[in-house]
Write a protein that binds this DNA or RNA. Structure first.
Length: 446
DNA sequence: CTTAGGG
DNA sequence: CCCTAAG
């Protein structure tokens, strides 16, 4: 999605624009990135705290908006001269560059300061259209060394083989055309796309964080960054991109988190966690904006906004039109939807009978045969309810006083006889472990 | 699509 | 009741 969401052309430039002949290597930052960033603050005037995190990045990106410039220590790459950019580059990568393309320099520096799991390539010498290595062992050693400092990064051998160098060289061969005209596009978008691409190769073997993790992390952090931004404290290290939607509603960045991808490392593991929006969980509509070709960015953004508003409206109307859907405040303050359909006694009885007949675990079967008329009960619901019944029965029966506590898991007070029956079934089925065809149980139970 | 389990 | 990894 991220790929689709960004303008077609500018985005491809991760390979195309970025990988310019002379410096395909520079993509990758010094190994201990955070470390070096911090050091930078010490001796490198231009790069002081500049862009080691998303907030700063968006600050740079949205430099047309003065709001960010108030952040102490922030430097807008946009405002730097070529020479200054070159100095920053040097401070960042530990080597000189003769590139005069500001856009290119800016992007490199952004990447350099934001990547956290890449390796130093300073042992490489860049020359004309090629990359000359000082020696393979040397590089690998270097990589190894870096890895040893970061136990979470993937295998050494892979990193040597899949060194960014080779990828980049390869890429630059097949596409270089679209290049420059895209330069005026949002850096953030480029940033995002690069992340996506880089992620694929750099962390190929790392386990992908779950969608949920990503979303929740994103949410938490965007909240974070908002507050941090407002208070404007000096903690750049943890603030995140996609901030001030409030300050600048028409802002290109972040009305919809889906076209932002930030590059964070997951608990220092080097796994990259994209920044996503959690607005909608259902399937996207077919002709959703994100699939539209981009012609004019102004048009794009306004339409996006409209679309977003629609989306929100749908969401709301849905929640309020459906009797069974209520929003409940969750512990963390967010709203959570809940379909609450209290189990009726007859349903419980049906369930218990179903279990008796077909056996616990055959939820879909029970649902199909005994709950045909209760479309809202899914097999998962049955399973959940059974679990709760078990808990209730074992917790409550020994002493009839447990009544109150047992309701914790049961929507309705379950009559003791039923609970007894539940328990009976549970014990019986525990003795005769499943694995046979339900028919046995069926007959066994009259 | 189901199941099983954690949240 | 929700979510999601496994199968």
């Amino acid at each position: 999605m991220e790929m689709l969401n960004v303008p077609p052309d500018p985005e491809a430039d991760f390979e195309e624009v970025d990988v310019q002949p002379e410096q395909s290597i520079a993509l990758f930052a010094p190994a201990a990135d955070y470390g070096s960033s911090f050091q930078l603050e010490g001796y490198s005037k231009p790069s002081t705290g500049m862009v080691e995190n998303g907030t700063s990045t968006s600050a740079v990106v949205t430099s047309s908006k003065p709001d960010f410039s108030t952040l102490k220590g922030e430097i807008h790459l946009d405002n730097l001269t070529v020479k200054e950019l070159q100095e920053t580059f040097k401070a960042t990568f530990g080597r000189e560059t003769s590139v005069k393309d500001k856009q290119w320099l800016k992007r490199r520096i952004l990447m350099g300061l934001t990547n956290s799991c890449d390796f130093s390539t300073t042992t490489l010498v860049i020359k004309d259209n090629g990359v000359v290595k000082k020696g393979k062992e040397e590089i690998c050693n270097n990589v190894e060394h870096n890895i040893s400092m970061d136990p979470e990064v993937g295998s050494t051998s892979e990193n040597c083989e899949n060194s960014p160098t080779f990828h980049d060289i390869r890429k630059e061969n097949h596409s270089n055309a679209t290049g420059m005209e895209s330069q005026n596009y949002l850096v953030v978008d480029n940033y995002g796309s690069e992340n996506t691409n880089t992620e694929q190769r750099a962390t190929k073997r790392a386990r992908k964080p779950t969608k949920r993790y990503i979303e929740e992390l994103s949410e938490g952090e965007s909240r974070d960054s908002c507050s941090k931004l407002i208070s404007s404290v000096g903690h750049r290290a943890y603030s995140q991109p996609s901030t001030n939607m409030h300050a600048t509603p028409g802002q290109k960045v972040g009305l919809d988190g889906r076209w932002l991808v930030r590059r964070d490392s997951l608990g220092g593991s080097g796994v990259q966690v994209p920044y996503v929006s959690r607005i909608r969980r259902s399937r996207p509509r077919e002709n959703f904006m994100t699939l539209m070709p981009v012609t004019s960015s102004d048009k794009l953004y306004s339409e996006r906004k409209v679309e977003l508003e629609k989306e929100l409206k749908n969401l709301n109307s849905y929640e309020y039109s459906d009797d069974d859907v209520v929003t409940m405040p969750a512990a963390n303050g967010r709203l959570r939807r809940k379909h609450h359909r209290p189990w009726t006694l007859s349903e419980v009885v049906k369930l218990v009978e179903g279990v008796a007949k077909y056996g616990a675990g055959r939820w879909s079967e029970i649902k199909r045969l005994a709950f045909a008329s209760y479309s809202y009960r899914t097999s998962v619901d049955l399973k959940d309810k059974w679990r709760n019944l078990l808990r209730a029965s074992f917790a409550q029966l020994p002493a009839e006083k447990g009544m109150q506590s047992s309701r914790k898991h049961a929507s309705i007070p379950i009559p003791a006889p039923i609970l007894l029956r539940v328990r009976e079934l549970a014990e019986m089925q525990a003795q005769v472990p499943a694995g046979d065809t339900g028919s046995d149980r069926n007959s066994a139970h009259k």
